[in-house]
Write a protein that binds this DNA or RNA. Structure first.
Lengths: 205, 205
DNA sequence: TTTTTAAGAGAACAAACGTTCGCCAAGGTG
DNA sequence: CACCTTGGCGAACGTTTGTTCTCTTAAAAA
């Protein structure tokens, strides 16, 4: 169910408070944060959030709020980002229950690997690759890049930069590298989303 | 610093309570759980835990306890387990801040991969392999096993069972399989710790 | 042995906190 | 128009909860 602006504001505050403090906020603190003067209004809002399945209220207990979604996690980029901003940091389908600070403090997201073009780097189909959002990738780093032609597509390859040309190199001899000249980069035919900082595999491998 | 029995009991209760409820317990609840009749005794114990670095007390706040160690995580098996029990579920050096239920509800631990004998399965040196504790592994599964001779050693290999013989097969043509006959297994020269259920890689891969 | 320290009991108190009740304004709907 | 729902205010109340004091006992240190 959809969240009203105030409900969303409250939920985000609760999650942020939880991450910062290690326990949930009180009704009063929530009210103060979202600009409510009456606690009862906050309480009603919390009940709405409960009805919509975003949290659970434990009756009578101080700070008795139980978040349903994991408080800290790495969002999995489901569909290919089309417009701007490239990384929509909302409405992710899935959130990996992994503390992001394990991989670094910056903005992170995860990408599910589709093909076998990177098996040479120990990256298998189905793996979740953790990406740090940045446009400044160095030579030799594995990057997530979005190709705009012929159609929008996100791909994971090793980056090679040689005097202006940008090469996205698979780690599998069966695949050919993608080569982009200066003008291709300038015209936005390729755009680097970020660099790989980790990998999570679920299953028997 | 070392924990007294009661301190350890309290800390474990707090962690379990936190996992179950999503917020920390009250001083009273802790007292009830560990058999203290006086709250002040509990409070002093909490201060000891704080002094020893296991948690933080936020003064004046209800349920104002902040755990230092991650509440939910996967322990990393540091050194090779020598005696029984093979998996000591205490005093782990490191805990991965990953919700164990992501990989399964059973008992899990992680193992840091040392060599390159499993690169063919996309498992690189330095990777953290998540293992589900079980002695019943099926043919073709990747298992963590402990070899007792010539010296105790934990290894990760693909399991192959052929009428009584147990083969631990590397996924790298440069390495030879380990073959164990029925009597080797019976004499405990090889013991299966568990099967691989996931993998976590930290770094640029 | 005397002294000190650690660990807990029990009472008392002041905040912190959740919860309910009645009221009100805006907006849609018959 | 009259009616109902939604979303908010304000007051009041009763618990829940942290925190401090003094006292007791047993072990350790001197």
């Amino acid at each position: 169910m959809a969240l009203s602006p105030k409900e969303k504001e409250a939920l985000e505050f609760i999650e942020a408070y939880f991450v910062d403090n290690g326990f949930p906020p009180t009704v009063r603190e929530i009210g103060e944060a979202i600009g409510f003067t009456s606690k009862s209004s906050v309480y009603k809002l919390l009940r709405r959030l409960e009805a919509k399945g975003y949290l659970e209220i434990v009756p009578g207990e101080a700070r008795g709020l139980r978040l349903i979604r994991p408080a800290r996690g790495i969002p999995v980029l489901g569909k290919i980002p089309a417009g701007e901003p490239l990384i929509p940091y909302e409405d992710f389908e899935e959130v990996l229950p992994v503390d992001p600070s394990f991989f670094g403090e910056e903005k992170l997201f995860a990408l599910r690997v589709k093909g076998d073009s990177m098996v040479g780097a120990g990256i298998l189909p189905g793996d979740l690759v953790v990406i740090r959002v940045t446009e400044e990738a160095k030579n030799g780093e594995i990057v997530a890049a979005v190709l705009t032609e012929p159609e929008a597509e996100v791909t994971l390859k090793r980056l090679e930069l040689k005097d202006g040309t940008l090469v996205l190199k698979p780690e599998n001899p069966s695949y050919e590298p993608f080569v982009f000249e200066k003008e291709d980069v300038a015209r936005g035919r390729v755009k680097i989303l970020g660099v790989m900082v980790g990998l999570i595999r679920k299953g028997k491998g």
